[in-house]
Design a protein around this nucleic acid. Structure first.
Length: 193
DNA sequence: GCTAGGATGCTCT
DNA sequence: GAGCATCCTAGCC
């Protein structure tokens, strides 16, 4: 069990996104531990990516993206959903990796309660689903990913095939192939073709 | 199996 | 005031 160091995130966002697949994301609270394996992510870069929240400069909402790498960026969207990102690249660059799907590991009973469903494959198979399952909201915005509450670890998951596709749900810059996923996983936000 | 549309409110222009 | 890095349900093949 190796906690990913800050230097892991302080690299090219596309490499970080790819290498995050198969790692384990953990949220610990005093009463409950949640964990899940990362099976689907998307990369959001700065200058060339009109879909990136940081594309038009820093605002109050996206300031965490401009900060140092290895921190959680949580934003609210569609009036009811939170999405979780991992900040990448050096301080001053607005880049991040969106976590789109997890394979639930620990805390599954609590996730079922949070999500209102018993179907394991429906607990964390979408960016807003996994924040709901893990109980993540604005409170976690800006927390370190190697801290007391949030952690990302490498548990030596064996090799797998990586799938690549266009990102999902965008209007701007929709054609960049910056979505990465674990091929054959049953916990993705979309069925593979 | 699929698609269309509504929910709902923060954030920036 | 418009636009959202979404999810769920109803209705229709």
């Amino acid at each position: 069990m190796l906690i990913l160091p800050q230097s892991f995130y302080n690299r090219d966002t596309l490499i970080v996104a790819r290498e995050l697949l198969g790692k384990v994301f953990i949220r610990k609270t005093p009463s409950q531990t949640f964990s899940g394996r990362l099976v689907e992510v998307e990369a959001y870069l700065d200058s060339i990516d009109a879909a990136c929240h940081g594309y038009n400069g820093m605002t109050k909402r996206n300031e965490v993206m401009f900060g140092p790498p290895g921190f959680a960026y949580v934003y609210f969207t569609y009036g009811m959903h939170y999405c979780l990102n991992f900040v990448t690249e050096e301080e001053g660059r607005a880049a991040a990796v969106l976590i789109r799907a997890l394979e639930p590991m620990e805390g599954i009973e609590a996730m079922k309660k949070n999500r209102g469903t018993d179907l394991i494959t429906n607990l964390c198979s979408g960016p807003a689903k996994l924040t709901m399952a893990f109980g993540i909201d604005r409170t976690q915005n800006g927390l370190p990913l190697s801290g007391d509450e949030l952690l990302v670890v490498d548990d030596g998951y064996p090799d797998f095939e990586t799938g690549v596709s266009e990102r999902i749900g965008l209007n701007a810059a929709a054609d960049f192939p910056w979505r990465f996923y674990v091929k054959g996983s049953g916990f993705l936000s979309r069925r593979e073709k």
